[in-house]
Amino acid sequence: MHRNLSQAWRHVRSLSITTLSRTERGMDVAKTLVSYFYYFVPFVAFFYTASPLRLRHNFQPIWPLDWAPYFHLDYITVVNIITVVFLATALAGIIFHHHRLARLFVFIGLWQAHALESSFGSPNHQWYMWVFVSLLFVLLPNVWRKKTEESNRVFLLYVWGAQALVALMYSMAGLTKIMESVHQFLLGQVHGFSIDAFAYQIAYFVPRLQEEAVLAPLIVAHPILGWFPYVTLILVQACSLLIMVRPGLQKPWAVFMILFHFMTYFTMGISFHPQIILVILLFLHSPFSPRTIES
């Protein structure tokens, strides 16, 4: 059994970036991953434009929107400008994402729209990671036009970097849950590893958010049903960075995270649809996964 586990562990390692950069298959998968990211940015743009931003109050512009009060623009004008810029850059990115300037504009559109969504007292977490991934992708070399081993390596490096950043964010989420659990345990409170933990989360947040959560009554009535998934989530989140050194784990990890976001929706009514898309794009067909290269 020890030998089998050892073999399995070795199998989920990746080829090095340098080796991958010399493979046609590896580069094709990496380029496809990046292209599909830009094909789906308009999807995020649609979610943004479909939200009732014009009806919101208590606009407190954060620093990326400092140009708005500088030009004495009213809220609706700011919304309209950002909407047009976001849609235009997102659509342009579908065709021109091979060019760095286009990728820069896509980042600016995403960033400004996200900053607007985050200017009502708290940041928008649902598509935070899209902004950072688009920022990293600005630095991609144009391997669609000019292929050299050096440019291939840099390209793969930033694809890896985008994956690593998303995995890092999930790890931070898990780590902070563990830290807070220890703190609450020491205070004698219900903590993240308690049987009732998930039930308390649901009972507190669902009435505050006032969203439909079909599984919420079941978990609150029977907290033990939520215990194992909740504890597993904390541990898997905390260990997320492991998938960057064992890329063969990326696909099962991604499936788990997608299930986690589904469960968050059905138990707490909180949707992370753009995040699900990002996890699918970055991890379900990763150029670093041994199975992708072997197939």
């Binding site: 977490h125 999930y170 609450q184």
Partner: peptide
């Protein structure tokens, strides 16, 4: 993120971290 906690664009991703007693 861990030091600043929540100052745009840095965030420690402590979402639903504390169990509300």
């Amino acid at each position: 993120g861990m030091y600043v906690v929540d100052k745009y664009p840095f965030f420690n991703w402590a979402l639903f971290t504390k169990i509300p007693n």
